[in-house]
Amino acid sequence: MRTSDEELMMKCRNGDMSAFELLVMRYKDLITNFIYRSISDYHRAEDLAQETFLRVFRSAGRYEPKCQFKNWLYLIATNLCRNEIRDRKRRNTAYLDDLIPDNEDTSYVELMQDVSQLPDEVYEKKERQIIIQQTIDRLPENQRLALLLVSYQNLRYDEIAEVLECSVSAVKSLIHRARQNMKTLLIEVGIGESSHAKV
């Protein structure tokens, strides 16, 4: 039987390191992906994911299983992402990492090994992914986070409301606006269907 996250967290509270390790194993990829999609910087995303888990570990003593562990974890990660986005805005810094994906070389190598796709198809796919990521980056902070949580993390609206600390109706409207903006921005960059192509 699969031990629940909350039970593992209670064990972790009592100093059980293996329980903490199991929790990290369960969520490390999800959290890193979420942070990476929010800030578009792979190395920084890994750092922030580690910081998220360390914060969980540090506050394990105060942990009360009032809400789902997953939501609490995403709440911490979201706060770290918000801080990072605001820091970047304040510094007004453009990172080279933002322009070139960090794991580009390795991904290309992996994709090139796939003989089912032609090299130009691989290149096109990669270019497309970069454009999509850049489009996501252009969304306002809250809309971006809400869209990422629903599209990539498959969280329910009530869970997102808990993570973003707002009401479910606010989440509904955030996601709707995010999708509308995304659709417009994707048409601008030439991906997706134009508004009057097909009615």
Partner: peptide
Amino acid sequence: ILQQLDPV
């Protein structure tokens, strides 16, 4: 379109 992004 959003689902086209590969997970890291």
